[in-house]
Design a protein around this nucleic acid. Structure first.
Ligand SMILES: NC(=O)c1ccc[n+]([C@@H]2O[C@H](COP(=O)([O-])OP(=O)(O)OC[C@H]3O[C@@H](n4cnc5c(N)ncnc54)[C@H](O)[C@@H]3O)[C@@H](O)[C@H]2O)c1
Ligand SMILES: NC(=O)c1ccc[n+]([C@@H]2O[C@H](COP(=O)([O-])OP(=O)(O)OC[C@H]3O[C@@H](n4cnc5c(N)ncnc54)[C@H](O)[C@@H]3O)[C@@H](O)[C@H]2O)c1
Lengths: 206, 206
DNA sequence: CTGAATATGTGAAATATATCACGATTGGTC
DNA sequence: GACCAATCGTGATATATTTCACATATTCAG
């Protein structure tokens, strides 16, 4: 069965926690209770998630850390390289572009685009910023499936339409709007501002 | 009853959609079906959410756009100013700092901190970068309740501990780790990388 | 003024997600 | 080698969230 989004995100959190933990102190095995404790999740949930990707633990011992990391990476497809284009090399786009942390999940930004003539042609973090006019040919030529969208919100639907028209299969959307795309295209929203709903409400209730 | 996180986020999306829609074409009223269509949500859900914050619509007409926006802002506490400190003025922290879009939700970054001696004392987006050593006194003196965390992940728990010790009430966490804090402190995680779980999995399944 | 059409508001049902309870398995101890 | 304690695996249960179904309210046409 296809894994749900909530499961995928927890798997990623397990993976990250284990990577961070083993970085400082090498350990062979870990129990569902230890993971659950650190991530504030129910231990049963951890075991069910592990079961869902075929991991089996050992009674009285727990799970092999190595196995868990490996299984997560394989199931999620982190071993596969995903070439991506980044559109809109501004404040946020620039930060994402220079961030080295995405590599280990298989993300590789191969080209970046902007509409600002003052930026195109220039170089940023080892990438020459290309004109937005060359977006479609580039995607078509290289068979790119993933786009990272960091433009102003006003143009994001227009760009999304263009991306869809050249066969993009996933959009990582950092612009604060709900994009309309065909059902076979995945839009993953990273609507940062939404966090403020929870924060403002919490602070108001004090 | 206290509103749940999922409800708060949908309310914010309604608000954002209405703001964006009315910006281009002024309209008086809108139906739950129209909102639902644009945001890919069930219309019943929209009505229930509206009901939860005391909004009543009119049969055959819908809801007053003005009323909706107003009610959301009030309930969420966007009218109240929330002074905040930002910690870690790097790529991402810098992007957040210069972003004007948070203002309308009441967020106001009043001071920024970094540990890098090459950065402290310098100015960025109208803020003088302060030494991390002055963090605790500043928060105490100004009664700050909210911190935005953009440091390297290695130090984020340490900083979080310090924040808690001076009485911070909410942390907007952009660092990829699960912070341990007392139950009365809200941590809102903006774990950007988690998006890659959904994306990589989707692309792998094609 | 009346009827048809279109919205809302909401209890009931369905679905999704998380937690509990407990038998089965393993490792260490005496 | 037998017992004890800790841990897994999982069906049953509980909770959360979404969707359905429909009574009620409102507009507009004729
Ligand atoms: N900066 C943040 O902290 C932050 C936070 C939340 C959301 N966002 C969202 O992320 C997006 C980018 O924000 P930012 O702060 O980087 O803005 P920015 O203005 O710094 O960058 C936008 C970039 O997009 C380019 N651009 C404009 N039109 C374009 C087009 N048609 N094609 C290609 N490129 C185009 C601009 O030249 C600019 O380089 C915005 O939608 C913003 O709402 C940003
Ligand atoms: N840049 C991105 O696109 C991105 C994406 C996802 C997550 N993140 C996370 O956001 C955080 C910041 O990322 P970044 O790219 O801005 O990194 P960065 O290195 O550009 O910035 C980090 C800043 O924190 C400062 N700092 C270090 N130790 C500190 C301390 N003890 N106290 C105060 N300040 C301290 C550094 O001097 C630097 O200015 C990281 O945890 C990163 O994993 C970043």
């Amino acid at each position: 069965m296809r894994l749900k989004r909530v499961v995928l995100e927890r798997l990623m959190r397990y993976h990250r926690f284990l990577s961070q933990t083993t970085a400082s102190k090498p350990i062979q095995t870990i129990t569902s209770a230890q993971i659950a404790e650190a991530l504030d999740i129910d231990p049963t949930q951890v075991r069910k998630d592990f079961g869902a990707i075929g991991l089996v633990g050992i009674g009285r011992v727990g799970y092999q850390v190595e196995d868990v990391c490996c299984a997560v990476r394989t199931v999620m497809g982190f071993d596969k390289e995903n070439p991506a284009v980044l559109i809109g090399v501004g404040q946020l786009g620039g930060a994402l572009l220079t961030y080295p942390g995405f590599e280990k999940y298989g993300l590789s930004i191969t080209a970046v685009f902007d509409s600002d003539p003052a930026k195109t042609g220039r170089s940023k973090a080892g990438h020459t910023i290309r004109s937005i006019r060359s977006l479609k040919p580039y995607i078509r030529k290289h068979g790119i499936m993933l786009a990272i969208l960091c433009t102003p919100v006003e143009v994001s639907q227009t760009i999304a339409d263009r991306l869809v028209s050249v066969g993009i299969k996933a959009i990582w959307n950092f612009t604060p709007t709900d994009l309309a795309v065909p059902p076979d295209v995945l839009v993953r929203d990273e609507h940062i501002s939404l966090g403020l709903s929870e924060i403002a409400y919490h602070l108001k209730k004090l």
